[in-house]
Amino acid sequence: MRRCCVGVLVAMMVVLCAAGMPAAQEIKGPIKIVVPYPAGGGSDVVARLIADKLKDSLGQTVIVENKPGAGGRIGTEYAKGQPADGATMLLVNPALFVVAPVVFSKLAYDPDADFAPVSLIQIYQFCASVPPVSPIKDVKGLIEWIKKNPNQANYGSPAAGSLPHFFGLMIGKAAGVEMVHSSYNGSGPLVTALIGNQIPIGVDAYDAQSAYHPDKIRILATAGTSRKQPDIPTFKEAGFPEIEGVGWNALVVPAKTPKPVIDKLSAAVVKAVRSPDVVEKIKGMGSDPAGTTPEECSAVFKKDRERWVPIIKASGFKAE
């Protein structure tokens, strides 16, 4: 009797699984990409470009849902609570996945436990710039100037606790001077202050500053592994190998999403990111298209955490 029951159960499970297997790869209903920022921003624009392409390759409706607030943490928490069936993806960046877990004592999500990576979609670089009237011409001149003028050695970043904030600290460390950091309310005000010579040094994402003619903003160096512009060196080339690192936008899903579904999404995202017009538009914004497997994406998360966490901890920065 008991064996019979077990047999029936096993048979039922086999049937269920068999029925469930192909269904697991099929994503029900419209797919939504949660963007934890307001519509119209850089992240939102990229998400919409991808959504448009995914529509064709997956043959499903793909919508972008903006859930702004608290620097992206509200949208991230929201996405964490969505069903893990592949119908919800979330756009994340280092601020949410690398910095936030260190600087917030009570964070409502855990990047590793609550989410699974799908694909890296875009990589952006950071750079240090000076106003056009500045006597500083290159990285060497920058370090010398900081050493000579420790009382004026101020730098601006687009936000307190952003990666540019920490990049600035590293530059100061290289010069052996504790530079004073002033955070602006985003890239726009920082750029205005920089062009108007209100602040001597600005550290920001490359795409926020490269749009200006060199007679408005002079970019000294970028922080990537290779040159972004033929005439602007990387910090590494300029003799500061420790000042290196990039930012990214990636798509993740709630952690319990089945692996086959993640793989399917990842393949579709990679295809979307690599389509020629998307590549052109992402490059037009000053950043680079990526498109990776979930494993590669996961490796980038891990590597960046290893790079940044000690620096952030050493800075003593806390958000609460």
């Binding site: 608290a70 943490r73 509200i74 936000a159 307190a160 958000a319 609460e320």
Partner: peptide, 20 residues
């Protein structure tokens, strides 16, 4: 909300919606 200069949260009573 979030203090622009220091990034610290002020008077938010731990409510994430008040961070802005």
């Amino acid at each position: 909300g979030t203090d622009v200069t220091s990034g610290a949260h002020r008077f938010t009573f731990g409510i994430p919606e008040l961070a802005d």
